[in-house]
Simulated scan of single mutants.
Amino acid sequence: MNLFWIKFKDILELIVFKHSIFALPFLFSSMIIGSKLINGTPWFGFKALILGIICAVSARNFAMATNRLMDEDIDKDNPRCANRPNISGKIGKKSVWLFIILNAVIFLFCSYFINTLAFYLSFPVLFVLVIYSAFKRFSSLAHLVLGFCLGLAPIAGSVIVMGEIHIYSVILCLGVTFWTAGFDLLYSLQDMDYDKKAGLYSIPSQFGAKATLLISAFFHVLAVLFWLLFVWQVWGEALGYIALFGVCISGIILFFEHKIVRNNFNHIDKAFFTLNGYLSVLFFIFILVDLLWN
């Protein structure tokens, strides 16, 4: 039994499970908006909730494990990654492959029971989740590809609840994409020197720290603008001033995130996880309160 829990903890460390907090609130935000538009209530039912959570978790597990496997040749020489379970030997390559296949099957299986569109889209979604690791080897667009991977969450929410890709979910997807790409740029500053040595095409390694901070700030401005456009898209039908206030709070959080990182790169982890975790949860809470208030 103790061996099982040790392996379980190693798996959670491999996929950095705590970072699931970034995408899930945006999935739920999209689902309650979709339900409000078609049902007149934010509640979308237990079936959609359970299948949505399973799909989100299995897709992320698949993406993270695939990334770890594809990046082994890069990570093994990076001091920051030396303690990852697949690098240290806690988890073998066969186990990682088994975990990848298992989560892909779970994702496809659950998508089938959501609706036809969800099942058809599940295959290209898995493809998109795989290509991020390849992009960093030849293009600086890898940060945006990663952002789009998380940005798929609100589109998934629309598909799960409404059976279609509604325009609000596309706008919210773009906001999440630029938000994620922006904080990934800040996070990747930690690996700037190593990426240069390894020949990787991260924006910090290609353009330097100052340019990275500027591009990250620009991405976050775009994120807030798309979030404002998202609220405007469903203004009156679903959202109002409470959601608008929530977007403003999100913008303030991003401002402090940049202020923290600019003052001291040693605080990147704090800015990356703590502030962005708060932001995603608060974003959902403001959306939910607005829907319930109206």
Rank of each mutant, 00 (worst) to 15 (best):
G40F: 13
Q233L: 14
G157L: 06
P25W: 13
C149E: 13
F218N: 03
R60C: 00
I131P: 06
F207K: 11
N263F: 01
V105N: 07
T212M: 08
K196P: 09
F284C: 03
S29D: 13
F283D: 14
P204T: 00
P85Y: 02
L152W: 11
C55K: 00
G182T: 01
K93Q: 02
Y112G: 02
I101F: 09
L51R: 10
F183N: 08
F219P: 00
A271G: 12
N266Q: 14
A198W: 03
Y194N: 10
F272M: 05
K76L: 07
R60N: 03
F219C: 08
S158V: 03
I131S: 12
R137E: 08
C110A: 07
G157A: 04
L213E: 04
S205A: 15
W227L: 12
L69R: 15
L108F: 13
H258Q: 03
G236N: 04
N294H: 15
P124V: 11
F226G: 00
P124Y: 04
L146T: 02
Y194E: 05
D269N: 15
S188L: 00
K197H: 00
D10V: 01
F22C: 11
N264V: 05
S139G: 09
S122A: 14
V261E: 06
V130H: 14
G151C: 11
H166I: 05
I249P: 10
V145S: 01
F135E: 05
L126I: 10
V16A: 07
S88V: 07
I101G: 00
P42H: 13
I106S: 09
L108E: 10
K259H: 13
G246R: 02
I203P: 00
A118F: 01
V57A: 14
K259N: 11
F22N: 05
I6T: 13
K76Y: 12
L291M: 07
E72V: 09
N264P: 04
F28K: 04
V161N: 08
G163N: 05
